[in-house]
């Protein structure tokens, strides 16, 4: 991960800790980053330096105002105004890691074709915790391209149980 993203994430975590809501801010920041990842138009608009920073900040506030914590809106607005929209995903991921470390836990990015139920999320978290030997928080990303199943990424380790992966293995077998 880029050192600059880590520094931004540290700054965001410091602000959130000061506000006493690091857990919520990191979660919301992760969601905003995924939303940005899923919308090319939004990502390009917020990354366009031809658009005035005030205008980009206004877009962020319009999108998040009333739906996220003020702290989350402020840090996202600050990142966008600094012209680091393209680093927002990395910053959010690192912020989540920082939050998990503060709580003595790890974070697993879990991709599924459909949204998990609460029961499935709890069981998956428990299974990943048992598999890695320490407590794991999961951050779920709905990604229909995996067709089905689950892809869990914990640090550098990837546990791929997706239908797309199975088909790829089958194709390689042939």
């Amino acid at each position: 991960m880029a050192e600059r993203s880590v520094s931004y994430a540290d700054a965001v975590a410091a602000v959130a800790r000061a506000e006493g809501n690091l857990d919520a801010v990191s979660d919301e920041l992760f969601r905003v980053a995924r939303a940005l990842e899923g919308s090319d138009e939004l990502r390009m608009t917020l990354s366009d330096r031809q658009v005035p920073a005030a205008r980009r900040q206004q877009i962020v506030e319009d999108l998040l105002g009333g739906q996220a914590l003020e702290t989350t809106t402020a840090v996202v607005s600050m990142i966008v105004a600094a012209g680091r929209s393209s680093d927002l995903i990395g910053i959010a991921r690192e912020a989540v890691e920082i939050n998990a470390r503060d709580r003595g836990r790890s974070v697993a990015e879990v991709r599924t074709a459909v949204a998990l139920t609460g029961d499935q999320a709890e069981r998956l978290s428990a299974a990943l915790s048992a598999a890695t030997g320490h407590q794991v928080d999961i951050k779920v990303v709905v990604d229909p391209s995996i067709m089905g199943g689950v892809v869990a990424t914990i640090g550098d380790e990837v546990i791929d149980g997706s239908v797309r992966h199975r088909l790829s293995q089958l194709r390689d077998t042939f």
């Binding site: 599924t112 074709a113 459909v114 998990l116 139920t117 499935q120 069981r123 998956l124 428990a126 299974a127 990943l128 048992a130 598999a131 089905g148 199943g149 689950v150 869990a152 546990i159 149980g161 239908v163």
Partner: peptide
């Protein structure tokens, strides 16, 4: 149901 079953199978295999 198939999707749910796939996720459950994954959780079972990881467990």
């Amino acid at each position: 149901e198939m999707q749910r079953q796939l996720v459950d199978d994954y959780i079972a295999s990881v467990g």
